[in-house]
Structures are given as C-alpha cells and as structure tokens.
Amino acid sequence: MISIWFFIGISLAVNGALILAAGIYQLVNPPADPGVVLYHLHANVWWGAALLVFGLIYCFKFAPKRKA
C-alpha cells in the first residue's frame, strides 16, 4: 500500500512548486501594488522553495517500491 507520507510529499511538493513559481514571477515582474505587508521579504519564494524541498524528500523517501 502507498504510504500516507508519500501523499503528503506530493501535496507539499506541488503546492511548493506553485507558490515558488508565483513568487519568482513576482520577482521578475514586480507588481505596482503588492497588496501585502513585508512584500520585500518575498516570502512566497523561500516558503515555496522550503515546501518543495520538504515535499520532494518525502516523495523519494516514501515512494512506492516496485515489486521484483
């Protein structure tokens, strides 16, 4: 059976990738009105990256094993 931790890895990796992509897009195309406080910290870049790395670790560590 596929481990629950693998599903969690997928969830965090996909969400992290989407958030990181949105953050990089904003870095490249800075909005006139960011709409959030502390925009200069670019939280979506580093938080998205952290979730992506964490998720990928879980995906690889708990990936379903192929049967011999």
Binding site: A22, Q26, G35, V37
Partner: peptide
C-alpha cells in the same frame, strides 16, 4: 492571512 500572504501563499492558507 491577507496581510502577509501573496499569490500562492493565500491559496495554501485558504486550502
């Protein structure tokens, strides 16, 4: 959430 979270982060918070 709206104060600090921009695109993507807001979606995650709502999720």
């Amino acid at each position: 959430l709206a104060r600090y979270c921009g695109p993507g982060l807001l979606g995650l918070g709502v999720t």
